[in-house]
Design a protein around this nucleic acid. Structure first.
Lengths: 340, 340
DNA sequence: CAAAAAGACCAAAGCGCTTTGGAAGACTCT
DNA sequence: AGAGTCTTCCAAAGCGCTTTGGTCTTTTTG
């Protein structure tokens, strides 16, 4: 059932039927009702390919997926995706993942823009002065950055959480509890979020006349294993930290394992705070010692990004507004006063 | 730069240019070279929307993504996706995720098929007599099932691993080591893979005159937390198992934690074997006690599914062939003879 | 009451590609 | 030399939608 057939059986022109269906004003309400009704009754669905060709709109949002043997898509991506899906579903948007060589995403971005394959795209895990941001800005396709980049001469639209504030608060709490040797187990420090977290922590330490030494900071991809290694490295030093802030719950898993292996206890020997992206399958309250966290749902962020993308596609949202979400600090059993 | 312009500047018809580019035989090799050359020089890329409309081919493979507040996309999905992406990238295929209400995926499948939004789709986490398989079979779109369904009156194409064989071998090893009380911590037993694993384990037990009692089997979604709970339930019984087979490394993490909390040791008090889907971020050899596993890379499976989908789209593969991959049994420190 | 404006509809021209059904010329064969 | 066969190319017809530029009524306005 296509437009031609439908309009023929209604004894109307394709023009009128098309307009009736798409809500254009120049059609009699009575006629519109008739058309709508017939369309529903016969299960008419406009062919998206044809519509695309005519309008250039695809009803899809795009994401360039870095791939390659060495590249792993991490759980954060998925959870974010879930949120995006939540919103997309209720608005009949589809998501196109375009796999690209991790070292050459630019070509793929150019392709999907040139081909008009999607109406908008989003970027995740941005770095400072991220080339993708600059590229999309010149390419002129609607986009949102999940996270932040820095150091451009222009603004761009983003949705981010207050990573700096979160880790500032976490460190401040630990300091108030008497800790003097703090350590940070961070994510990949080429990414902006990690830089912001470090910055927040340093700011809190500096304010109390403390510092974050080279030996007290680790920066690794966020896996359980890396969490374990980092913790061992930190805790086996001559002057080990008495408190650790950790960028991910997955790494925290490794930290807990290391602490146990070393025969130490939480929070007796070590206070621990980790950032919680709110994974449904890994909850800080269910750690052997319930974990204190800085919490922000990455899933909600996904839904929000989808929402803003939709708004940009339809022209409701414009300009380069960035939004920064506050982060909750949730205190549980894993923090305590510094050991004597 | 579109076909019209290109053909005009070559003083050829659109027909000839189109054919030259698409490798049709009825064009002079010399001409073809000229065309190819000009196309490359001017960066001509056929408009995919137009091509879609004309051919019906989209160059995309689809996946219906179950979403909803209660639904979590699990890490297995992502790792599978990585593999799919690896293949898709090198063949210029894109992946379309169509979010759908988890309880009504059927509508979405019908939509993407009716709309010709993708050339092929895949299904994951199938259950016995999975409705999606039956639906796609009648809808007539190329598809591959990752995993297996059962109990239809027809065949369908799938790629699966030998879950039954894997857990049969695992159980057999444990039995040979003298274990008599085995337990299984399984995934959601509505899914076929879990059923197969249980079946394999029972077969091994039966062969030795043993049984798998109701009290020695848990079936839960595969999270760390559920692994912990299951292990505690099993180990706090009056006659606890001396060996556990576990369906996932993530659950095994929880099992290890439970064992420790109960003051037990691996492999002294408990032997443990888990299935390893080969996540780059969680490796069995790095567990405190290196974990024995049944191993099969879910990432490779993703690449294989993409490959078969591509083959089906191009008509190279046909029919309902199913393939079952063998699973490795990798023995590490977490198994030992049964305690006296 | 004639002129202008508004309302309701339509025919046809795209969008940019693929593919059908030739046609013209070059080659072979008897 | 004429008939048949390749080879190589082209004009034009889709694919199914949106949108432009009208037309024909009906209503409003000075």
């Amino acid at each position: 059932m296509n437009l031609k057939q439908l309009s023929h059986m209604l004894a109307l022109s394709q023009t009128t039927v098309s307009r009736a269906l798409n809500g254009y004003p120049e059609v009699n309400e009575e006629t519109r009702r008739r058309v709508m009704d017939a369309a529903k009754r016969h299960g008419y669905r406009p062919n998206p390919s044809a519509r695309r060709l005519a309008t250039g709109k695809t009803g899809m949002i795009g994401y360039v997926l870095p791939t390659g043997a060495a590249v792993e898509i991490d759980p954060h991506f998925v959870e974010f995706l879930s949120g995006l899906g939540d919103y997309a579903r209720s608005h009949e948007l589809d998501l196109v993942l375009s796999p690209a060589d991790a070292d050459d995403q630019e070509t793929t971005y150019r392709r999907i823009v040139a081909n008009r394959q999607v109406d908008a795209v989003y970027i995740s895990s941005p770095r400072p002065v991220d080339r993708r941001v600059a590229l999309l800005n010149t390419l002129g396709i609607p986009f949102i950055v999940h996270g932040r980049s820095e150091g451009f001469g222009f603004d761009y639209p983003f949705t981010d959480i207050d990573n700096e504030g979160a880790f500032h608060e976490a460190a401040r709490l630990l300091i108030q509890l008497g800790h003097r040797r703090l350590a940070l187990i961070n994510g990949d420090d080429r990414e902006t979020f990690a830089i912001h977290r470090e910055r927040g922590m340093r700011r809190a330490l500096t304010a109390s006349g403390l510092t974050l030494g080279e030996r007290h900071i680790c920066s690794l991809t966020m896996t359980e294993e890396n969490g374990y290694r980092a913790a061992r490295r930190l805790l086996e030093q001559s002057e080990p930290p008495t408190a650790i802030a950790c960028s991910s719950l997955i790494m925290a898993l490794g930290v807990v394992r290391a602490v146990r292996d070393l025969g130490l206890t939480i929070p007796g020997d070590l206070s621990l705070i980790a950032h919680d992206d709110v994974f449904p399958w890994l909850k800080p309250e269910n750690f052997s010692v319930p974990l204190s966290t800085t919490r922000s749902s990455i899933r909600l962020a996904g839904a929000r990004v989808a929402e803003r993308l939709a708004a940009r596609i339809s022209g409701v949202e414009e300009g380069a507004r960035g939004e920064v979400w506050p982060v909750d600090l949730v205190v549980r059993g894993s923090v305590a006063g510094a050991p004597a």
